[in-house]
């Protein structure tokens, strides 16, 4: 039984690590702000789920697992929200700059 749990953890940790690393590469290498943002937010959710679930498999049915569940829940709520707020703010700022340029041209 514990072999299967270990195996599951390994697989989840592998997926999680890979996703986190790809996300970080994307944030570093992609050309524009919005592409970078998409790399970060997309990989982050699944990577977080994988890593935290992997730890949960190791922790078993304990208080720690409940805490990990809470952490996972809060992260899944907050990180897309902050990504959304960030993208929204950046988009608004860009639109404002564009309208200002148009106003200046007139």
């Amino acid at each position: 039984m514990s072999l299967f749990l270990d195996l599951g953890s390994w697989v989840l940790f592998g997926i999680g690590s890979l996703l986190l690393f790809i996300g970080a590469l994307g944030v570093l290498r992609l050309p524009t702000l919005f592409t970078r943002m998409h790399a970060a937010s997309l990989t982050e959710s699944l990577g977080t789920i994988a890593v935290l679930t992997g730890i949960m498999l190791q922790a078993g049915l304990t208080l720690a697992t409940m805490k990990l569940l809470a952490i996972l829940l809060f992260l899944l709520l907050t990180s897309p929200t902050s990504s959304y707020a960030l993208a929204n703010a950046a988009l608004l700022a860009r639109n404002r700059d564009q309208t200002r340029e148009q106003a200046d041209r007139k």
Binding site: L20, G23, A24, V27, L33, R36, M37, A40, E44, T48, V51, L52, I55, L68, I71, L75, S79, S82, S83, L86, A89, A90, A93
Partner: peptide
């Protein structure tokens, strides 16, 4: 841009949560 920095800090925060749990 400032937004890149915010993105990086935000990402760093999530990674700290994961690092601490691990």
């Amino acid at each position: 841009s400032i937004y890149d920095r915010i993105l990086a800090v935000n990402m760093f925060g999530t990674k700290t949560v994961l690092l601490v749990s691990v």
